[in-house]
């Protein structure tokens, strides 16, 4: 995938029209994280219903890859069992580390984020939301 395709077909839609953007109240977990080098910021809200991640929302600012990836993440994991959300996050991390190709059956459209792997300095931007989600699940004792 060319950089232009990555931006035009994957990133910019979510960057311009982020899904689940804003505060989530009430919430069970709220976490703020940033990339010190870039200044990308994310604030993640999680609400659980039993072992399910009932709702998720984020606030943030930063480059398009960090914000679009977070938006795609919320769209994918909302309503899923926490364990499954965690498995998806781990799978995304492995894909970004080049350890896995990314299974379309598990990741769906998120496989397109693999286009970022070619730009090593941007991988941490793409993973900011996912790492924050993993921390949040951990904090909630749900995964």
């Amino acid at each position: 995938m060319s950089l232009e395709d990555l931006y035009k077909e994957v990133i910019l839609d979510h960057y311009r029209s982020p899904r689940n953007k804003g505060r989530l109240d009430p919430h069970d977990v709220r976490l703020e994280r940033n990339n010190p080098l870039c200044g990308d910021e994310i604030e993640l809200f999680l609400r659980f219903d039993g072992d399910d991640l009932e709702a998720i929302a984020f606030e943030g600012k930063g480059c398009s890859i960090s914000q679009a990836s977070a938006s795609m993440m919320t769209e994918k994991v909302a309503g899923l069992p926490a364990k499954q959300a965690r498995a998806i996050a781990e799978s995304i991390k492995a894909m970004m580390a080049g350890e896995e190709d990314g299974d379309p059956d598990v990741l769906g459209d998120l496989v397109s984020l693999k286009g970022v792997v070619k730009y090593p300095v941007r991988i941490k931007c793409a993973l900011l939301g996912w790492n924050t989600l993993l921390e949040g699940l951990e904090e909630a004792g749900r995964a």
């Binding site: 950089l3 931006y7 870039c38 990308d40 941007r122």
Partner: peptide, 12 residues
């Protein structure tokens, strides 16, 4: 356009 996006794009 965030500067990090810009730096990646012009690098191409």
């Amino acid at each position: 356009v965030h500067p990090h996006d810009l730096a990646t794009i012009v690098d191409e």
